[in-house]
C-alpha cells in the first residue's frame, strides 16, 4: 500500500520502464518543463505530517539501483534534493542522517523519502515487528557497549 501511490509531481519523473513501457527518450529528458522543478517545500506542499508512519527517524533507506551517476538520464530529471537523497543512499542511511547530511527538515525528508520509494528510486527498510526490544537484541547492544573503553 505505501508503495502504491505516486504523487502527481513525480509522475512525469518516474522512469517509464519501471512500469513496463519504453525507456525515457532523449526528447523527454531534454524537456525544460520537466527539468524546471520547484523546491522541496513546494514539492511537498508544506506537508510534514500525514506521512507514512512506518517511516521513522532510524529507518534505513537504500537506493534501489546502485551505481547511478548524478547525470544519468533517470536521476538528472529529479529535483536536486531528491537526487541527492538517492545518491547518498548508495549506502544504507537512516532518515535522520539523510536529513542532517542534506540539511533538510525531518518532516520534509520523510515526505521526499516516501515519494521516492513510491516512484521506485528507494527501498525503505521498514521493520515488520513493531517492537525491536527483544531480549536478544538488547543483550547484543549491552555486549557491544560493554566493549567500549
Amino acid at each position: 500500500m505505501p508503495d502504491g501511490r505516486i504523487r502527481p509531481y513525480l509522475r512525469a519523473l518516474v522512469p517509464v520502464e519501471r512500469f513496463g513501457g519504453p525507456a525515457p527518450t532523449a526528447a523527454v529528458t531534454a524537456d525544460p518543463a520537466i527539468t524546471r522543478v520547484p523546491r522541496p517545500f513546494v514539492l511537498t506542499s508544506g506537508r510534514v505530517t500525514g506521512t507514512d508512519p512506518t517511516i521513522r527517524l532510524e529507518t534505513q533507506v537504500t537506493a534501489r539501483y546502485s551505481g547511478q551517476r548524478w547525470d544519468s538520464p533517470e536521476l538528472s530529471r529529479l529535483p536536486s534534493e531528491m537526487r541527492n537523497i538517492v545518491l547518498l543512499c548508495a549506502e544504507p542511511f537512516s532518515v535522520a542522517e539523510i536529513a542532517a547530511q542534506l540539511r533538510l527538515q525531518l518532516g520534509v525528508t520523510k515526505v521526499l523519502v516516501g515519494d521516492l520509494r513510491a516512484a521506485g528510486y528507494l527501498d525503505v527498510h521498514v521493520r515488520n515487528s513493531a517492537d525491536p526490544s527483544t531480549p536478544d537484541v538488547i543483550q547484543r547492544v549491552i555486549d557491544g557497549l560493554s566493549a567500549i573503553t
Binding site: 532510524e58 529507518t59 534505513q60 537504500t62 544504507p92 537512516s94 527498510h125 521498514v126 521493520r127 515488520n128 515487528s129 525491536p132 526490544s133 537484541v137 547492544v141
Partner: peptide, 13 residues
Amino acid sequence: DPIRSRPSVPLPV
C-alpha cells in the same frame, strides 16, 4: 524481517 535477510542493511535500534 526484511532487514535480517539483507545483511548489508543493519537493524536500527
